[in-house]
Nucleic acid binder design. Structure first.
Length: 970
RNA sequence: GCCCGGAUGGUGGAAUCGGCAGACACGACGGACUCAAAAUCCGUUGCCCGCAAGGGCGUGAGGGUUCAAGUCCCUCUCCGGGCACCA
């Protein structure tokens, strides 16, 4: 240890340098990005001629566990990009806030009895310390915390904007409620003047983008709260905690995201996002084109059942109909008795299965009642466990197929969902797999109306005219319509696409239906029965109708209560939510004289209102934080128009780079787009989309080791030898996955700082692989990037004296060319976030420089200066230190990134391979600008090629100038 | 089941347009320095045959297009992710 040179780049020196520069960056406000005007505009003049660049990370939830090395991967990536862009002439905004409302803080608070605010603040402080130690260049003035009153005041304000807006379908945008009133007054179908204030308010409320709705919602008793569809897994469990979730009708706040279906879908095309995320959003929105068709019900002249289908071309093949169990018309059409068998064509007797699974003696109404109960109590998980076996019950009623007048039985079955389409389907078993299964189960007729191609029959060993009743499965592909004609329309012979057009035209002409588009996306369930969230700025009057609090009454602060635990009830799906805010007895009522618009009855004077007791979901704060970063101290506005226009841009602008994990593909990223569009419609923001370019960073994963008992052992103590893994000579098994406490494989940034320093950690994480790929953490590999920094340091600094030892003598030609090729490649790689290859280039240059230094005894300044600057975005502390020791007083943060001299990027001579029949047999030097003939001549002149071609006939010569020559012999 | 993404040395990974596969790094092996070790520095390192010169094979598997395929086309296997009774 004693013979290590005094000024070697060791962990200790690295730590010293890092602390020094972190302090300087902070005290000199290096990363304060000035706004064009307002409170944060100091220093803008200096940047006035720069272009803006807004780089954003998905902000973290401040967990108590602290960071492991996997967490900051994306933050380092954006920091490198931001630093690079500063050096190429941009005014770069990069900040980091905290998304701190939500369940974990609340659960921790319940366990420890501490107020969530206390733990949240402690966690944020710890996280800030860990992130600061990474040397991230954030504008510290903009680090918002969603749980600060000064922040959630504006979250509440945005909610009021949404509440006070309606969607104008004609204009295809949201408008203020004040502009709805004249529309309603003018509507001849609404007798506005005759409506009393309560009726008017109820009507208006039904138009709002934030509305109360009594409908089946996802109730999770174990979490004590309701959840959005996006928060429930396909198995019907809560994404958080994996608890069972039940569908239960409750009155809850909904946000009308479905009004934006088309725009959320179409505007994906404007975005530079990974195609996989766009696909996930498209699937989630789930647009499908089809038609609605009305079916008359026998014996009920006043009732028509509207079905939605994507296959109107198969209408002639509809042999029965299915309603969802919750369908409102079920009770109306259910028969009093099971129909006489003779009334039913093709069916000898009602199969017993039609009467339900709870006995054959029930009348239709009772069979349906029992079936509904059965379906209602099945969780999604149970439905899945049953393997999608079709269940259902006959209503005893018949509908009429409008194309051919056929009487078709109407069933209730839970494979039809109330939440999609119209909650009713026409069943075409020949051409739909689900209907086919159901038809087989219930012995229903199967009528083929699309003729499959011959190969389809051949593959199933069927005669080419086999009737659909004998098919082993449904035919859902493309074919030609058959058996599809009546006196007024015939589809026979048409392709599926043409048949759709023809039948749609007929349906419209006969007013039996119309082409329609439906979506899978549902409105966003926006209330939670939790303490640790934003209170709604809403109160209720004596009619139970919501009244918005005026902006002047914001913020509505979270009341202090003692017991903030949600009422958690395991395994009792009958339980009901119990919002913790109800316990704030002094707070639940509000004495106020609220401003009521004249159309709603006008001022009612001072009276008592009841507060909304639910809170907003965790996603609320993250829907707009990127706007608050722009103007975090503004007390009068969410964001000043000037700051918003400057940083977000106009037109198809938005955030220039948004980096985060793929797990938010349909949650945060969809919700935030929706809020942004509402705000855009209301003129508060000026771009159609918030996040123009999205990049998903990968995950750092890790190996975990378990011993013979299956118990996880400390990964850092495991040794690899003889092709196996051992802990104290005992063999252990290796598995690959997440980093986590329970797996005993966590590596923290602090561990790495201590051993190598923060620059080494940054460089290693960027070097491991492409930023968007997941890769395994391997502590043994860190030494490689650490050696690079050590060599770089040694090339510039005399390890004995600590002084720079650079020479003014010019570099040799080869070195200079390598330098410029490196600059060119690194600049391109950094723009593409291709840091791993950029670092590899820097390694090459530095390795070469090591030889140069060995030869001449000093490092040529013309190489050192650009090398240090190129290293700066990646390893900023050591680069700043070298920069200073090279004689500069100011931070290099805004120094120009080196520029490559194009003349030095092309060599005069290039070495190209010469192939014979595609195999490389020689390499020759040719001038870079040699033409085909000269290149071929040079190849032929090679001794070895001459020899090999001596006895052969050359059939063809392929010459790619400056690339290769290939002799095809034959 | 459907839709995406992926598979390259012992390991992490390179390879704009189809044009020298394996950049860079780890590890391993050999050497220098050292009493020794660590650190550092230098060299070798896809596999096989060969003393060598050289040759053969090689990007998950099989087939195809091409003078030339990791890259394009077809079929398949495995891994990762998403969706899933959405009519």
């Amino acid at each position: 240890m004693s013979d290590v040179p005094k000024h070697r780049y060791t962990a200790a020196l690295a730590n010293e340098i890092e602390r020094k520069w972190q302090d300087r960056w902070e005290s000199e406000h290096i990363f304060w990005a000035p706004n064009p005007s307002g409170a944060l505009s100091e220093g803008f003049d200096r940047f006035a001629d720069r272009e803006k660049l807004y780089v954003l990370d998905m902000f973290p939830y401040p967990s108590g566990a602290g960071l492991h090395v996997g967490h900051p991967l994306g933050y380092i990536g954006t920091d490198v990009y931001a630093r690079f862009k500063r050096m190429t002439g941009f005014n770069v905004l990069h900040a980091m806030g905290y998304d701190a409302f939500g369940l974990p803080a609340e659960q921790y608070a319940v366990q420890t009895g501490q107020h969530p605010r206390v733990t949240t603040e402690a966690n944020i402080a710890n996280m800030q310390r860990q992130l600061r130690a990474l040397g991230l260049g954030h504008d510290s003035r903009r680090g918002v915390n969603t749980t600060d009153v000064s922040y959630y005041r504006w979250t509440q304000w945005i909610f009021l904007q949404i509440f006070d807006a309606w969607y104008d379908d004609d204009a295809q945008r949201a408008r203020p409620i004040s502009e709805l009133i004249p529309v309603l007054e003018a509507d001849p179908e609404i007798s506005w003047v005759d409506l009393d204030p309560v009726a008017r308010r109820t009507l208006v409320d039904s138009y709002r983008l934030a509305y109360l709705s009594e409908q089946p919602v996802n109730w999770c008793p174990a979490l004590g709260t309701v959840l959005a569809n996006e928060e429930v897994t396909a198995e019907g469990r809560s994404e958080r905690g994996n608890h069972p979730v039940y569908r239960r009708p409750m009155k809850q706040w909904m946000l009308r995201i479905t009004a934006y279906n088309d725009r959320l879908l179409a505007d994906l095309d404007l975005l530079d996002w990974p195609e996989s995320i766009k696909t996930m959003q498209r699937n989630w929105i789930g647009r499908s084109v089809g038609a609605e068709v009305d079916f008359a019900v026998e014996g009920h002249e006043d009732v028509a059942i509207t079905v939605f289908t994507t296959r109107p071309d198969t209408l002639f093949g509809a042999t029965y109909m299915v309603l969802a169990p919750e369908h409102p018309l079920v009770d109306e059409i259910v028969a009093s008795e099971w129909p006489d068998a003779t009334l039913m064509p093709d069916i000898d007797d009602i199969p017993l299965a039609w009467k339900g699974i709870f006995g054959i003696d029930n009348l239709p109404a009772e069979a349906i009642r029992r079936y509904r109960e059965f379906a209602d109590h099945k969780s999604e998980l149970e439905r899945q466990a049953e393997g999608r076996e079709k269940t259902g019950v006959f209503t005893g009623a018949f509908a009429i197929n409008p194309t051919n007048g056929a009487r078709i039985p109407i069933f209730v079955a839970d494979y039809v969902l109330m939440g999609y389409g119209t909650g009713a389907i026409m069943a075409v078993p020949a051409h739909d797999e689900r209907d086919f299964e159901f038809a087989r189960e219930f012995e229903l007729p199967i009528a083929g109306v699309i003729r499959p191609p011959d190969v389809w029959f051949e593959a199933r060993d069927l005669a080419p005219d086999a009737p659909a009743g004998t098919w082993p499965d449904a035919f859902t592909g493309d074919g030609v319509a058959m058996n599809s004609g009546n006196e007024r329309v015939s589809l026979d012979g048409l392709t599926v696409a043409d048949a759709k057009v023809a039948i749609n035209a007929w349906l419209e002409a006969e007013t039996l239906g119309a082409p329609t588009v439906t979506y899978k996306l549902r409105d966003w369930l926006f209330s939670r029965q939790r303490y640790w969230g934003e209170p709604f700025p809403i109160v209720y009057d004596e009619h139970g109708l919501p009244v918005a609090l005026p902006e002047s009454m914001l913020p509505v602060e979270l009341p202090e209560i003692v017991d903030f635990a949600p009422r958690i009830v395991e395994h009792d799906e009958e339980s009901l939510p119990d919002p913790p805010l109800a316990r704030a007895e002094d707070w639940v009522t509000l004495e106020a004289d609220l401003d009521i618009p004249a159309w709603a009855g006008g001022s009612a004077g001072t009276k008592t209102y009841l507060r909304e007791l639910n809170t907003m979901p965790q996603w609320a704060g993250s829907c707009w934080y990127y706007l608050r970063y722009l103007d975090p101290t503004n007390e009068n506005e969410m964001v000043s128009a000037e700051a918003e226009r400057y940083w977000m841009g106009t037109g198809n602008g938005g955030i220039d780079l948004y980096v985060g994990g793929v797990e938010h593909a349909v949650l945060h990223l969809l919700y935030a787009r929706f809020w942004h569009k509402v705000l855009a419609d209301l003129g508060k923001v000026h771009t159609p989309e918030p996040f123009r370019r999205l990049f998903n960073q990968g995950y750092i994963q890790a190996y975990a080791y378990s011993d013979e008992r299956g118990v996880y052992v400390e990964a850092s103590e495991v040794e690899e030898r003889d092709g196996g893994f051992f802990l104290d000579d005992a063999p252990v098994d290796r598995e690959y996955g997440k980093m986590g406490k329970s797996l005993h494989n966590v590596v923290t940034p602090d561990d790495v700082y201590e051993q190598y320093g923060a620059d080494t950690l940054r460089l290693y994480e960027m070097f491991m692989g492409p930023l968007d790929a997941s890769r395994p953490w391997n502590t043994n590999d860190i030494i490689g990037v650490h050696r690079f920094l050590q060599r770089l340091w040694r090339n510039v600094i005399d390890e004995e004296t600590g002084a720079a030892r650079v020479g003014a003598a010019p570099a040799d030609d080869e070195t200079r060319r390598l330098l410029h090729r490196t600059i060119d490649a690194v600049a391109h790689d950094m723009d593409d976030l291709g840091y791993n290859t950029a670092i590899a280039r820097l390694f090459e240059l530095n390795n070469h420089l090591t030889h140069v230094v060995a030869e001449r005894g000093d490092a040529p300044e013309e190489v050192v200066v650009p090398l240090v600057l190129m290293t700066a975005p990646l390893a900023p502390h050591v680069a700043e230190e070298l920069w200073e020791r090279l004689g500069h007083d100011e931070s290099l943060a805004f120094t120009d990134f080196p520029a490559a001299d194009p003349a030095l990027l092309v060599d005069e001579m290039v070495e190209i391979p010469v192939q014979i029949r595609g195999k490389v047999r020689a390499r020759v030097q040719v001038p870079a600008d040699a033409d085909d003939a000269a290149t071929e001549a040079a190849a032929r002149a090679d001794a070895r090629i001459t020899e090999l071609l001596a006895g052969a006939t050359v059939r063809k010569v392929i010459v790619v100038p400056a690339k290769l020559v290939n002799f095809v012999t034959g």
